[in-house]
Amino acid sequence: MKEYFVFIGKHTIRMLLLVFFVSAAAFTLVSVSPIDPLQANVGQAAMGSMSQEQIAKLQAYWGVGEPPLHRFFSWAGDFFRGDMGVSLLYRQPVSRVIGVKLVNSLWLMAIAWLLSGMIGFVLGILAGLKEGSFVDRLVKGYSLLIASTPAFWLALVLLMIFAVWLKVLPIGLSVPIGVETGAVTVMDRIRHAILPAATLSITGIANITLHTREKMIEIMESDYVLFARARGESTWSIVKNHALRNVALPAMTLQFASISEIFGGSVLVEQTFSYPGLGQAAVTAGLGSDVPLLLGITVISALFVFGGNLIANILYGVIDPRIRRGGART
């Protein structure tokens, strides 16, 4: 048991280091950009009308002329203390902007993550049960097609069908236009989240389905399943007693590792539906040269991705005793 805690500790430290290096990499990328943050954010005209002292003050605020390493550590230090800087586009602390947007996005991503995980798992098992059957070919074809479809285009197609053509769902945003914040009902929120969540779920299913299917085929060809059949076990009992546990393990790891993809998908989907979440904020920040916000979102998303990987690793240890004893899985 002691080794297991060492194992978890090692992975946690590794994750924190990785997050640190991600932020350093992101900081380097925005630092080498030829886009001058002062000009991009204050504007050429405003800068012309400002006094020399004001410009100097702003330059000091932006750290113009300071060595990059120094700037990075002062930014990272503040970040660690919870001060992520002030978003230039929203004129609010980055932490508050991210907080609001994250709640909106988490809804979407959590639903999509759960739905795609469960549906994909079941579809994968059904398909892998009998390789080459009608169900298998159907599921496989669907997965391959969806894996090749860009999320934003799928979003456009769903919009065309449900919002424009059938007119049953709203076109975008997370709340109705022209309604006070207090008057927005839960039903409204749900109605506005249906299409984005559906798009994300549909695209998320492909990966887990294909993976579960492969595993399932492998298991159905194994000796222990052959023996179970010889004993006269029914298909259902084979699935329940022999296959499920063996398939669930890798599927779970995959699902936790797929957080990065759901995040990426949510950027595209939120942009298409003008859904005010973290992904849309990232695009706005990138286009509008809002460096503090862009960096903040990068670090937060990296935390989620690595956190997912960490959970996958820990779960692996919980379920599979071999890994608990045998140290790190590479």
Partner: peptide, 18 residues
């Protein structure tokens, strides 16, 4: 792999001046 792919592309695009 830790940075969501799209976000990484946004960052690189920003680094090259969009």
């Amino acid at each position: 792999m830790g940075i969501p792919h799209i976000l990484l592309l946004i960052l690189i695009s920003y680094a090259f001046g969009k």
